[in-house]
Amino acid sequence: MEKLPKIAFPFIIGIIVLIIVVSKSLVTIGPGEGGVLFEPLGGGVNTEHTYGEGFHIVAPWNDMIVQKVRQQSISENMNVLSVNGLDITVSGTIWFQPEFKNLGNLIQTKGEDYIRELLNPAINAAAKSVVGRYTPEQLYSSKRDIIELEILEEVRNELDGQFVNVKRVLVENVKLPTTIKDAIERKLKQEQESLEYEFRLVTAKKEAEKVIIEAQGKADANRILSASLTDKILQDKGIEATVKLSESPNSKTIIIGSGDSGLPIILGNQ
């Protein structure tokens, strides 16, 4: 077997080095991601430029730090105290998005694990502050939407100027001690039954008022009509009715004398 020429060894080593350099210099940033350069020879994290999706060529002695820059969410289970000191577990989700242009500043100040270093403490602090203003009953029932908005506002205040935008906060579950939860549910059920009973009473009262009003209207109409029916009007109406009846083709009319009111008396209808 023939030995390789001496010049072949440096050539092979050069190819290997070239492959390493090229592989380290070509960086792919995926969809919804951004990258910032860490330059060991140039002052650390480059905060001036954020790289977008696609292929990028960087110096082999630099590192590309890639992070998600699209909207993301994290869920937390937080143990907090109500206004009366009751221990409550609140489960919530927060939607956030790092600022693309300031990704370098975010990583430089908070590190690559900024979610644990920055977001989690801010969420917990906001939840404790807001939940501590309410009673267990308010947390369990009627105040959920207001609590979400207040936590969102608190988190935004905590993260102001920290290069992360918080989009929304959702309080998914409020876990109370079983005895407290059962007592609240019984109270809510009683209140609902009371409201239904009041509704039935109000409905019945309105129906009774409607019947009274209709009866009163009919009585008033009859009274007005009775007052307007004089003997002369009744006589005229009787004459009109007698004429129409006499003109009917199905009637044979015989008029004999007159009645007490002066109207004709009609006999012999067919």
Rank of each mutant, 00 (worst) to 15 (best):
T230I: 00
F38L: 14
T93L: 00
Q97F: 04
R200T: 00
K24A: 12
A126N: 14
G34V: 04
W95I: 04
V58K: 15
V155D: 08
S91Q: 03
K237L: 07
E33T: 12
R156G: 14
N105V: 13
I13L: 11
I184A: 00
Y197L: 11
E99T: 12
Q138H: 00
I224Q: 09
D182Q: 04
K189N: 01
L267A: 08
S141F: 07
L139G: 06
Q162M: 10
Q97A: 05
T109W: 09
L86K: 13
V211P: 01
V171S: 10
F11S: 11
A204S: 15
L118N: 02
K143C: 04
D220C: 04
L225M: 13
V22Y: 09
P177V: 09
I123Q: 10
F100N: 07
G161D: 08
I94E: 02
N165P: 06
V22M: 06
L201F: 00
V27K: 15
N269S: 14
R156T: 12
V80P: 02
R223Y: 15
L263Y: 05
L103S: 02
T109N: 13
G111V: 12
F100K: 10
S194P: 00
E209W: 03
P121A: 05
L234N: 08
N84P: 02
T230K: 03
I256G: 14
E185P: 01
G268F: 02
A215V: 13
A215W: 13
N165L: 13
V202S: 09
T230Q: 01
E207L: 15
K167F: 09
E33V: 07
L170R: 12
G52Y: 03
V36H: 11
G14M: 06
I15G: 04
N77H: 12
G262E: 07
E148I: 06
I29Q: 15
P60R: 05
G104D: 04
I233V: 14
I233A: 11
A8M: 13
Q67T: 03
S248N: 15
F11L: 15
I266T: 05
E2V: 13
N173T: 08
Q162I: 07
D236G: 02
A59Y: 14
R223P: 04
V21F: 12
V90K: 01
I255K: 01
V174I: 15
Y134G: 07
V17A: 15
L152M: 14
I256W: 05
K101H: 02
Q216S: 06
